[in-house]
Nucleic acid binder design. Structure first.
Lengths: 193, 193
DNA sequence: ATATTTTCTTGCCATATGGCAAGATTTAAT
DNA sequence: ATTAAATCTTGCCATATGGCAAGAAAATAT
């Protein structure tokens, strides 16, 4: 007996009809990524996006001094997509890398366009997902200005506690906008609270 | 003889047919905002968005300590929209205020939905605009981590030189993630380069 | 034109975070 | 199991930026 398809958690029955799901679900292709392999690398144009069924993924940019800056972390249920590259059909400045072995479900741009233009619920959900990413990014951006590093750290481990087991301090630190040295000190302080 | 409609700069003839433009353009309503008036205020749900024909606009958030943090500046040709509030139909955490008298063209949510679902070019342009906002926000976010305040300042006045004539240092400073005191010192340093 | 309010600059010192390097610890490779 | 490599912690000191308050300058109101 088949287990329910992972994607039915993403495209739920209360928003999509049975007929729509029968069109949408088979369009996704199951793809495995080995630990440390790249889903996308700088200079390439994103031709796909993915939903993560299992594993951890990190996106990062390289700044002008060659430093690696984490821009996001993804795990089960998350969409992994470089919005600008995918929709503007332009080379990305980011890298997306598997931190662990991952199982993902992949969709390509042309298929996306067809679904987007023919199924209103798909369109709505796509727009909502993008807007939520925007909202999350703005929250992070404001937090960089309004909060101290320790507050950002607390919030991050509260929202994504499994990160600590899967991501190096260095990678978490750059996401928080600090060095790994400072993060180590912050953790020490945090532990003693 | 009529001057060409301002919105024809936004919805250009190479992307929209004459018929589409005849549907779209009349849906926008011309609205004037007096200096210091609010287009949107915290706690309200965004029911409209606007294209700025003339004037300057600022959006800002209030952080947990009650400090006002500029999140963006807008002027001629820019879209003024709170993406999450408008599309998620949720109360906003931001404020949007006219810094000068402004002439804007306004569209409401229901009309947007109709155009979005019936005109493919409108849909594409809307998505592209959102993705570009996302891209710009990510650039700012990375710059907060990778660059020094003086570099962000240089970039901002290069991209939007008219800001200096229309926005207080305090408001620019919070956008850059620093205090007005520090910005004043940075400007001094910058001037002597 | 004058008064009032707001904005901007500057000095003094405080604080958060960075840079570097040495050890300690953990993880991965043979 | 042993070795090698990567990661994490810690000390010492440097740097970017903040906080506060006073005065200067500019904008606004009467």
């Amino acid at each position: 007996m088949d287990s329910p398809h992972f994607l039915l958690n993403i495209f739920s029955a209360d928003k999509f009809s049975k007929e729509e799901l029968d069109i949408i679900i088979p369009k996704f292709k199951k793809v495995d990524f080995a630990k440390n392999s790249f889903l996308l690398s700088e200079g390439k144009t994103a031709k796909h996006y993915w939903f993560v069924q299992s594993g951890f993924v990190r996106s990062f940019a390289i700044d002008t001094d060659g430093n690696d800056i984490s821009t996001n972390f993804y795990t089960t249920g998350d969409i992994v997509i470089d919005w600008p590259s995918f929709f503007l059909r332009a080379p990305t400045r980011e890298n997306i890398q598997a931190l662990t072995n991952c199982i993902c479900w992949q969709l390509d741009f042309d298929t996306f366009q067809t679904l987007f233009n023919t199924i209103e619920a798909f369109r709505e959900q796509g727009r909502t997902t993008l807007v939520k990413s925007y909202f999350e990014l703005k929250g992070h951006s404001i937090s960089m200005i309004a909060d101290q590093a320790i507050d950002r750290y607390k919030q991050l481990i509260k929202q994504k506690p499994q990160l600590l087991q899967n991501v190096s301090l260095k990678q978490i630190a750059t996401y928080l906008g600090i060095t790994d040295t400072s993060l180590s000190r912050i953790r020490k302080e945090f532990a003693s609270e």
